[in-house]
Amino acid sequence: MGFSHATTGVLVGVAVATPLAAATGTPPTPVGLLVWALLGAGAALVPDLDHPSSTVTRSQGFVTGLLSRGMRALSLAVYERTRAPADRSDGEHRHLGHTPAFAVAVGTAVGLLCHLSWWASAAAVWFLSFVGLRALRRATWGWLRATLGSWTGAALGALGVTALFLTAWDDRPPGWTVGLLVALGMVVHSLGDALTSSGVPLAWPVRINGRRWAMLGAPRWMRFRTGTWPEWVVTAASLTGAAAVGCALLT
């Protein structure tokens, strides 16, 4: 679901552009909306660092592979320490990284680091936009799709996005904006997975029916398997919604 998650992140990035612009004093522009959309797309893929073959895990080779191993180890450790007797799972994929509580914690940490360090802001924006560009290349074609499919092309594109982000303010960019997008992107990812057959532990660490890691989600009749047509409906709706919101903000 890498591409569909990225498109829901695009919608989130564009949707929060107005309140972010109001809070930071920078009115929405077409370029600004593109930057927020790409950052949202990248943030919406972060939870899947808990899977060894996900889009985000494969995006940066050894670096994201190491992050993935760390995420899975942390998820398993937290699962083992907090599991209830009724919990029965491996404790890795779709566990800690897919909880709203963890999304808030990661977003807060990223926001704090970016607030304290210009370099942290640059690194976070570059990473998120790189992942977003790689995931969204499926919506492009020809030379652009081939360019974004290469590490060098995506890296240069992400460098351009980072430069646009860092130069959008007269003073140092407010780091909390990056943290907010990370948290929202991670949450919307989990909500997307809640529409699938497996569900996610949205209520953790609260116990539900004796399980702290209860896999929750939409009503059974609304759920679908990844790769089937309802996933494409979500993708199309997200892109259409992002385009509509973006046009409304610019008129």
Rank of each mutant, 00 (worst) to 15 (best):
L166C: 04
R137C: 01
W141M: 04
L166V: 10
A101D: 07
S121L: 09
G149L: 02
V161G: 04
P85A: 13
G91P: 07
V125F: 10
H95I: 01
T152S: 14
W119Q: 13
E92C: 04
L96P: 01
S129Y: 03
A105C: 13
T152A: 15
L116Q: 14
R94H: 12
P100N: 09
T99K: 03
H93Q: 11
W141Y: 11
S89Y: 05
T108A: 15
G149Y: 02
T167W: 15
P85Q: 13
E92H: 07
H95G: 05
R94F: 01
T152I: 15
G142P: 08
A105N: 04
H98N: 10
T167V: 11
T99G: 09
L144K: 03
S150N: 03
V161F: 11
A158Y: 00
A124T: 12
S150Q: 12
T147F: 03
A155D: 05
A122T: 07
G157D: 11
T140D: 06
T167A: 10
G149I: 02
V125Q: 15
D87Q: 02
A101K: 08
F165C: 05
P100A: 12
D87M: 05
A135N: 11
L96W: 05
P100V: 07
T162M: 10
A158L: 06
A139M: 14
V125T: 15
G132P: 03
L116K: 01
R138N: 10
A124S: 15
P100T: 05
R88K: 11
G97N: 04
P85E: 11
A122S: 13
A139C: 11
S129L: 01
G157I: 10
H115W: 12
E92S: 13
A109Y: 04
L144H: 03
A103Y: 09
G132A: 02
G107C: 05
E92L: 12
A109N: 06
T147R: 07
A120K: 07
V106H: 00
V104R: 09
L113P: 10
V131C: 00
G157M: 02
S121H: 14
A158P: 05
V106R: 01
V104L: 15
W119P: 08
L148M: 12
H115M: 09
L164R: 11
A101E: 08
G111K: 00
R137L: 00
F127R: 00
L96N: 08
A122G: 15
T99F: 09
H93W: 06
G107I: 08
G132W: 00
R134Y: 00
F127H: 01
R134C: 01
S150L: 03
G153A: 08
L136K: 13
R88G: 07
G111S: 06
A163N: 09
F130E: 14
L112S: 05
L164D: 11
G97I: 04
G97C: 01
L166F: 09
A135K: 00
A146M: 02
L112C: 10
L164F: 06
A122E: 08
A105S: 06
D87S: 09
V161P: 14
L96Q: 01
